[in-house]
Design a protein around this nucleic acid. Structure first.
Length: 571
RNA sequence: GCCCUUGUAGUUCAAUGGAUAGAACGAGGCUCUUCUAAGGCCUUGAUGUAGGUUCGAUUCCUACCAAGGGCACCA
């Protein structure tokens, strides 16, 4: 439609012998201003020395004359010289029909068609509790992956985990001190929780107790050397238990990874690359091998890649990881990494180093960063202790949804499933509704209040629409486009924009456009629902309203999917 | 000190250089003999400061102020 209107404008301008290189056509923010709007008159009025409004009137008149298609109902001049297009009833009904035909491929686009993209996200560390920040990275990463998939990309999902390092030694120290935590009788989730507690114990001891600190450093050496049978046993068990617990979490969150990269495996790769390029790119400084990035870009700074003791730092491992990814997916077009923004600067340094070694990778790396997740009220942390783990946050959210569902006459299994899905929706939506860069203040109470701007509101709207469709089926009212209502509903004016929103989200790697759109459309649907009886045998347009409801369920279901949220059919 | 990110209603967030800056929560008032009231309808309130570019700036540029993060052997 956009193209057609643009062409129409071009023709009109040509007839008036006005030359314009670029025509801007947009959706007015306010639906009262029509469905499309152009500012050409404002943009060119000055050049040709005419009053913008009179010029707009002239163009509009020509547009009306040229408009033979019945898609445009009217053209109007408004404001200081905007030309607004109002689409016809017929356009909207045809669009609903199209959505019904598209089914689950609704909103797809092809801007990443044929592109192979790897997205790395979540990155929790074995032996450590999953932090709320990991949940945040996961939500953003999964959503970006799905949006890119919907835009034609071939996506692989990667997870990078720190399986060695001081944090592991701290956890093992804790496990050795408090052997109860080594209990293997419970589920792997329970075991992982104990290991997380052991980590907290070890981390505290490391801070406050000199002897413990030395002991932990000893353990760390033994972990690297793998020469202590007892520590090896604990390590192997702990690694497995925490990794399995992560899998359970990913399952609830709706993520399935294709590749797992382990930090231990990247150390040698990174060290070899640094050594091979020392002299030209890396140089010695105080016994360490460093990369002086500021020589190549004054906004970057020097970072150590190999310590004076010969150990590769995180930077070297990250370099190794990047290379390993390109080896794993040889024809990769883009490698995306998602982390918190505290890592933004050194990732730029690593990327610079890599692009000097492999110039062909320079434009194939993208680092997307997000802010911190902070809790608005101290309510949760005071109740559960100081550390708020990702699991606790998720579990508490799900629990509160459960309470809300207790009066439903479903069996327990159904209730639990819905509670889980809606809980995840609450958490994910509150992360994805705002642009990725900034911090998120997670207000526990608000997110589970389920009113207004929330994940459960979206899920509820979908469930409600579904229940209407069930009723329609029972009454044998099938979607039809024979009889159209007189009124064009607000929701119709939003439904056809879905694919544009997905396209924008994909090109900017920003899920929040989809999230905001879904709220808008859910609100429009609920308003439609409140003001109309949809299933009504006495209304000849009822079948059309049912069709409209179907279209809404398709859009919201697919839109929620792009956010990594499952839409329950009832709640 | 230098480099990133961010400053919008009381609060949490929106707004591809456009029209009267949108929602939600909060507060107040209506609304279930009608398909899910986790809903709908109505009322209330904001662009950190000072310049600049532009027909037109929340958006772009400069300075300042404020918050968060980063800046050598931790990850």
């Amino acid at each position: 439609m956009e193209k057609e209107i643009k062409n129409l404008i071009k023709d009109a301008l040509q007839n008036l012998t006005i030359e314009v290189s670029d025509i801007v056509l947009e959706h007015p923010e306010d639906l009262k201003h029509g469905d499309y709007s152009t500012n050409v008159a404002l943009a060119i009025a000055k050049n040709i020395g005419e009053n913008p409004k009179t010029l707009a009137e002239k163009i509009a008149k020509e547009l009306e004359r040229l408009n033979v298609d019945n898609n445009i109902e009217k053209v109007e001049v408004a404001g200081s010289g905007f030309i607004n297009f109002y689409l016809s009833r017929k356009f909207f009904s045809r669009n609903i029909e199209e959505i019904l035909n598209q089914g689950n491929s609704v909103g797809k686009n092809e801007i990443f068609s044929g592109k192979k993209i790897m997205v790395e996200y979540t990155d929790p560390n074995p032996f450590k509790p999953v932090h709320i920040g990991h949940i945040m990275t996961n939500a953003i990463g999964e959503s970006i992956a799905r949006i890119l998939e919907h835009s034609g990309a071939e996506i692989s999902r990667a997870n990078y985990q720190g399986d060695i390092g001081l944090h592991v030694a701290k956890a093992i120290y804790g496990l050795l001190k408090d052997t109860k935590l080594q209990d293997k009788s419970g589920s792997h989730n329970l075991q992982a929780t104990n290991i997380g507690a052991a980590y907290v114990l070890g981390a505290e001891a490391y801070e406050n107790d000199e002897n413990a600190k030395k002991e932990i450093e000893e353990i760390n050496k033994k972990i690297y050397a793998r020469d202590d049978k007892k520590i090896n046993e604990i390590y192997d068990w702990g690694f497995k238990a925490t990794m399995e617990a992560f899998e359970d979490l990913y399952k609830i969150l709706g993520t399935k990874f294709d590749y797992y990269f382990l930090e231990s495996a990247m150390a040698d790769i990174g060290r070899d690359v640094v050594n091979a390029n020392t002299g030209e790119i890396f140089e010695e400084s105080d016994g360490a091998l460093v990369f002086k990035a500021e020589k190549h870009n004054p906004k970057l700074h020097t970072r150590v890649f190999i310590t004076s003791k010969g150990l590769p730092t995180y930077e070297a491992k990250e370099l190794g990881l990047a290379l390993e990814k390109f080896k794993t997916e040889p024809n990769m077009d883009l490698s995306i990494v998602i982390t918190a923004n505290e890592q933004a600067d050194y990732m730029r340094v690593v990327a610079k180093a890599l692009s000097l070694i492999h110039p062909e990778y320079e434009n194939k790396m993208l680092h997307i960063t997000h802010g911190m997740m902070r809790l608005a009220s101290g309510k949760m942390s005071s109740r559960k202790g100081n550390v708020v783990t990702g699991e606790a946050l998720l579990r508490d959210t799900i629990e509160l949804v459960s309470e809300r569902l207790k009066d439903r006459e479903w069996n327990e299994e159904e209730k639990n499933k819905v509670a889980e899905v809606v809980g995840v929706a609450a958490l994910k939506y509150s992360i994805l509704k705002q642009s990725t860069g900034g911090d998120i203040i997670y207000d526990f109470d608000k997110s589970i209040s389920f009113e207004g701007d929330s994940g459960p509101y979206l899920a509820y709207s979908h469930a409600r629409a579904n229940s209407i469709l069930e009723k329609a089926q029972k009454e044998n009212i099938l979607p039809s486009f024979e009889v159209l209502p007189d009124e064009t509903f607000e929701i119709e004016k939003l439904l056809y924009k879905f694919s544009e929103v997905v396209l924008r989200s994909a090109s900017e790697y920003e899920p929040h456009y989809v999230a905001n759109y879904l709220i808008e459309i859910a609100r429009a649907f609920n308003s439609f629902y409140g003001n109309n009886v949809i299933v009504n045998k006495d209304d000849p347009a009822s079948a059309y309203k049912v069709a409209l409801t179907y279209a809404f369920t398709f859009i919201i279901k697919n839109g929620l999917h792009l956010l990594g949220i499952t839409a329950p059919t009832k709640m």
